[in-house]
């Protein structure tokens, strides 16, 4: 039910509160995958290990995802100003950058496959692919939500008076970005050796 915000016990919007509650639990979700990855760093069963990562390539795609957070927050800002044209532009830009990231990840995966790093190769490979793969699924879900937001704002279902809808999707998007900030350092950059 959507009681007006002032009527709620905490003076908060239910939907935004629910999103934060959900994001709290998501830390536990990705934390478990990262733990498994760290545990299996050297468990490569003779297969490829972290040396296979292309740091330059991943840095570029990480940068793209990072900048998508900027366009996301600009979309929210534009929505708050009631500037729906600009909001839609930034939303599309965000979704596009998300697509670039996911596409980059797909390309990276196929490259790894060719070099023998497949999910079934070793516990290291399994935990790498499941960790980054589930992050990719999160980004994909985010892209679907962004495109939904974009189309709904075009047909007037999302109105200029409802910046909260952009804000909530933005919270999810930034969260996915923040998880990648962690993955980028922990998985790719730190030379655990």
């Amino acid at each position: 039910m959507s009681a007006a915000v002032e009527e709620t016990s905490l003076g908060l919007d239910n939907r935004k509160l629910a999103m934060w509650v959900f994001l709290g639990s998501e830390f536990m979700f990705f934390g478990a995958f990262i733990t498994a990855y760290l545990m299996y760093l050297n468990t490569t069963a003779g297969g490829p290990d972290g040396e296979i990562f292309d740091i330059v390539y991943t840095s570029v795609s990480s940068f793209v995802l990072l900048m998508s957070s900027l366009t996301m927050v600009l979309a929210h800002h534009a929505h708050e100003q009631g500037d729906m044209r600009r909001m839609r532009m930034w939303i599309l830009a965000t979704a596009f950058q998300g697509l670039v990231f996911v596409g980059g990840q797909a390309y990276e995966f196929t490259k790894f496959f060719k070099e023998g790093l497949v999910p079934t190769a070793s516990p290291f490979a399994s935990s790498f692919f499941v960790l980054t793969g589930f992050h990719g699924v999160h980004v994909t879900v985010g892209i679907i939500m962004l495109l939904g937001l974009w189309s709904y704002s075009r047909v007037g279902k999302v109105k200029a008076s409802q910046p909260l809808k952009t804000e909530i999707i933005g919270l999810y998007w930034h969260f996915v970005d923040v998880i990648w900030v962690i993955i980028f350092v922990v998985v790719y950059l730190i030379p655990w050796g």
Partner: peptide, 25 residues
């Protein structure tokens, strides 16, 4: 991490309950 959650996710400006939820997780 702090910059993104603090500014892009507005935790710096929002109710502390959200920060607590995130920190708990």
């Amino acid at each position: 991490f702090g910059l993104i959650v603090g500014f892009f996710m507005h935790l710096k400006y929002d109710t502390r309950l959200y920060t607590r939820l995130m920190v708990t997780g």
